[in-house]
C-alpha cells in the first residue's frame, strides 16, 4: 500500500497539487495498479535487452544537416502566451 507521504512526494515531483481526497484516492488506486503490475516479477528477464525503441532493427534515420531554417519568430511564438512582457514569456518571480 502506497502511503500518503509517498503520494505527496510523487505529486510534488510531478508538480500536481492534490486535494486530501485525491491523495487518498490515488493512494488506493495506485496501490491496486502496482499490485497488478507486480506479476511482472514472475518473469525471468535476465539477459533480455529492453525494447526502449520500437523502430525496426537496423534502421538508421537520416540526421538533419546543420542548416538554419526559418522558425516561428517571436510574435507567433508568443501568440498563445498566458502572460508576456516585450517578447519574453512572463512568469512569477524565479528565485535561484
Amino acid at each position: 500500500m502506497l502511503s500518503i507521504e509517498e503520494v505527496r512526494r510523487i505529486a510534488a515531483l510531478a508538480r500536481l497539487e492534490l486535494s486530501p481526497e485525491e491523495e487518498r484516492l490515488y493512494a488506493g488506486q495506485l496501490s491496486a495498479i502496482l499490485d497488478y503490475v507486480r506479476q511482472l516479477e514472475e518473469l525471468d528477464v535476465s539477459g533480455v535487452e529492453p525494447m526502449t525503441h520500437a523502430l525496426a532493427a537496423g534502421e538508421a534515420p537520416a540526421l538533419r544537416a546543420d542548416e538554419v531554417r526559418e522558425g516561428l519568430g517571436a510574435e507567433r511564438a508568443l501568440a498563445a502566451a498566458p502572460a508576456r512582457q516585450g517578447t519574453a514569456f512572463l512568469v512569477p518571480r524565479i528565485i535561484e
Binding site: A83, Q85, G86, A88, F89, L90, V91, P92, R93, I94
Partner: peptide, 12 residues
C-alpha cells in the same frame, strides 16, 4: 530574465 517586470516577475 530576472526582475523583468516591475512587480519582480521573471521573463523567459
Amino acid at each position: 530574465l530576472h526582475d523583468l517586470a516591475a512587480d519582480g516577475s521573471s521573463g523567459v
